[in-house]
Nucleic acid binder design. Structure first.
Lengths: 123, 123
DNA sequence: ATTAGTCAACTACAAATGTAGAATACGTTC
DNA sequence: GAACGTATTCTACATTTGTAGTTGACTAAT
């Protein structure tokens, strides 16, 4: 619990901004409200918190405040993944892979790609 | 956020009990304190909460209260995994697998096993 | 029965999180 | 420049989580 901790709700915000940024508060609200039903002020609160945590940068753009990520999605995904791996699989990657491989529905293409990567690693 | 939500700290407790149960509070404390440094009462609080949430069952055994899981580790791992998959990888298993496959250090043996499972799925 | 240890139950409290209203500031219009 | 409508910032509040102390109950020894 030290790196940029992004909560469930905050993650929703980030998702929007990782897809496209910068965006103004209202643009973000526009994108999120349909799915989440959150009040506009709720979304603003989350934006504020993320900004305070230095996960977002808020910059005035044409008089309006626009937000944009200071951290890439990849970084966050990696971080969360590492957390998850430790927490749920006690750090053991292979059991994790086994678990998801068994459960996932994968297309032939996707399987091929995974096999390729594995072969690569095996060399 | 509906199924048995087990927090970080609670998970530590569960880990102990999934390994061996039933155990008395003091046995659990004995196992956890070295690693966590938590006060005994802290561990008891966690045990209580888990019991209240119906994740543990507390039963008097020889005058002492012993705890045991009402949910298997597999169920919880599955649940958390599903959550994680949705939350971080937007439900897409293959990218998740790719991510972990790339990052993980795997032994030749482990790779072989994964390849076997993949081949199985591909058929 | 009285006391001294345990064990178990209850209470406490700060920080984080989800959720949002209230107040204020700013730009635009008459 | 007064008023209005948005935009931005503050404040609020219940719940959950981490963390633990206090109290009461029970048992064994005196």
């Amino acid at each position: 619990m030290k790196a940029p901790e992004i909560t469930e709700a905050e993650w929703r915000i980030m998702t929007v901004l990782w897809e496209k940024a910068p965006l103004t508060a209202n643009q973000i609200i526009g994108k999120l409200q349909p799915d989440t039903g959150w009040a506009a002020t709720t979304i603003r609160t989350l934006l504020d918190r993320l900004t305070k945590k230095k996960i977002l940068k808020a910059a005035k753009l044409d008089g309006l405040v626009a937000f944009q990520p200071l951290i890439t999605k990849e970084e966050c995904v990696s971080h969360e993944s590492e957390n998850f791996l430790q927490r749920i699989f006690d750090g053991a990657a292979q059991p994790l892979l086994l678990h998801f491989t068994k459960k996932a529905k994968l297309t032939t293409e996707e399987i091929k790609e995974l096999q390729r990567i594995l072969k690569e690693k095996g060399k």
